[in-house]
């Protein structure tokens, strides 16, 4: 059993948003259109969030890619009344679209605001349906969704390893965001494997986690900008 985690090196990140676009394409995320997006209803499983400080000369616009943290102690799972979100044996926080009643308690409980809701029925024109991937189910209106750490890729990789009669090795599983990143800032792997890249990077002096003090145990580790370190 693995314990999946992600490391995002902020010193490498250029803020290009390739991860955002790749994630949307991979996971069949619908566009909501201009009016809805202006209301703040856009769905961005991976989103670049900003921290702005101070006034002009010192305006520091730092940004970081924020997927779901897949917390070890997920607050969303605690509050879901119907068990539509759950933590599986590999540490992934899953979402069962078929069970979700859309009460949005999980969205209000998440301290990272990493969850999104389908306010209307996601729609694609007939032509646009052609680029939908069969690997990821389409969500109906009225359910919550969020980053899944590309669980379909994890399962595919596992199946492939099984077919090839071997174990999963580090590098077998690459989420869509990590695959596309032009500056190779996103790493993914098994945090329980001491030899995996993410385990080693997680020990870096530059490593930090968001809202760590809340005890959520997020499994996305960021490496802050700064001098080169191992």
């Amino acid at each position: 059993m693995a314990r999946w985690g992600m490391v995002i090196d902020l010193d490498r990140c250029t803020g290009c948003q390739a991860c955002v676009v790749a994630c949307r394409q991979e996971n069949n995320i619908p566009e909501v259109g201009p009016e809805q997006a202006a209301m703040g209803r856009g769905i961005y499983w991976m989103q670049l969030i900003e921290e702005k400080e101070a006034a002009h000369e010192d305006a520091h616009i730092a940004y970081l890619p924020r997927p779901c943290m897949h917390c070890d102690n997920p607050l969303c799972v605690k509050v879901c009344p119907v068990g539509a979100t759950y933590k599986n044996s590999e540490g992934l926080v899953g979402q069962v679209y078929a069970r979700c009643i859309g009460c949005r308690y999980c969205t209000t409980a998440c301290p990272y605001t990493a969850r999104y809701f389908n306010w209307y029925k996601p729609e694609w024109k007939p032509e646009e349906k052609k680029y939908l991937s069969p690997d990821v189910s389409l969500r109906p209106k009225g359910v919550v969704e969020k980053c899944s750490f590309c669980v379909h890729r994890i399962r595919k990789a596992r199946r492939k390893a099984k077919d090839e009669n071997r174990e999963l090795v580090d590098g077998d599983v690459v989420p869509a965001c990590g695959e596309t990143c032009p500056s190779k800032a996103i790493f993914f792997g098994d945090l329980d494997d001491p030899n995996s890249e993410v385990s080693k990077l997680a020990k870096s002096r530059r490593a930090f986690r968001l809202e760590d003090h809340l005890g959520t145990g997020p499994k996305v580790i960021y490496l802050r900008e700064g001098e080169w370190s191992e």
Partner: peptide
């Protein structure tokens, strides 16, 4: 259904920028 970077190509080495990722949208533009 998806466009990724060519892993062996010496320029992008498997990576792809946001515009490349949006290529299927161009193909299937309504």
């Amino acid at each position: 259904i998806k466009v990724e970077g060519h892993p062996g190509h010496p320029l992008n080495k498997g990576a792809l920028c946001p515009r490349g990722q949006a290529a299927p949208r161009l193909l299937y533009h309504p």
